[in-house]
Write a protein that binds this DNA or RNA. Structure first.
Lengths: 126, 126
DNA sequence: TAAGGAGGTTACAAAAATGTAAGTAGTATG
DNA sequence: CATACTACTTACATTTTTGTAACCTCCTTA
């Protein structure tokens, strides 16, 4: 799927870190640009490709397809094809994908705290 | 600090997502390669540059300095210079930096669950 | 004067992630 | 046969991240 150069120092470092450190491993799976947004919509209900395309503001078909493929490979979601005409493809979170909910929540809470602190500091220094 | 092209679609998308979505915002701050490792060592005690360099397997001076600068800018840690000879520079997590501990923990736990599921599936299919 | 340690910085190169635009496959309907 | 629809895929360009290696500064001690 990917054309990664396995021998690059970059890749060796990445693999090593993800091997010794579960946090790095998790980030390797969920850390890319659009995955949070895709997850955000799918957690409420299964959705088809075109629905996601419309929901996830600014995403291109290429990035959506790419991320969905990776998420399927990583077992965050399942892909079901309904042989209708035109074809209907539905994406749905798996249990381990759903299990991300509290993780995302906590990450978001920390983000909010952080944003508050940073903006307080900024207003003080004015 | 960064030479980002603010007008690039890439940057516009990133900014937009981090604006509407606290999870993406948090990932923008903690999501890069070495930050987890740096955090991992600093959470136990303040450390100096050379100690971190030795502890964080495989990191180069450049990447260490770069990440520490970003983490200081983002208020995850403080940098204290002791005017000794040779100079001693100590990095220490801030409260909001420390507040990442449960976030990393949960992320790591999810990672472990995920790894288990994936390796189960692999052994089944053999 | 030279060498050495701590803590970097700089210019450059390689690799990876993201974006753009056009094309594809299968099936139906006019 | 042409068009339309969904769900992609492909070739290519741009942007960003990460790595390599050499250099720098401030002191101090030999």
């Amino acid at each position: 799927m990917k054309k990664t150069k396995l021998s690059s120092t970059n890749q060796v470092n990445k693999t090593y870190l993800e091997d010794v450190c579960m946090g790095a491993y998790a980030l390797g799976i969920i850390g890319s640009r659009w995955k949070f947004s895709i997850f955000f919509y799918l957690k409420d209900r299964p959705m088809r490709f075109s629905e996601l395309k419309q929901s996830v503001q600014g995403i291109t078909e290429r990035m959506l397809a790419l991320n969905l493929t990776e998420m399927e490979r990583d077992k965050l979601l399942t892909r079901t094809v309904f042989a209708e005409v035109p074809v209907r493809v539905v994406y749905e979170l798996t249990p381990i994908g759903m299990a991300l909910t509290p993780v995302w929540d906590q990450l978001g809470n920390w983000g909010m705290q952080h944003k508050d602190i940073v903006s307080e500091d900024e207003s003080k220094s004015m």
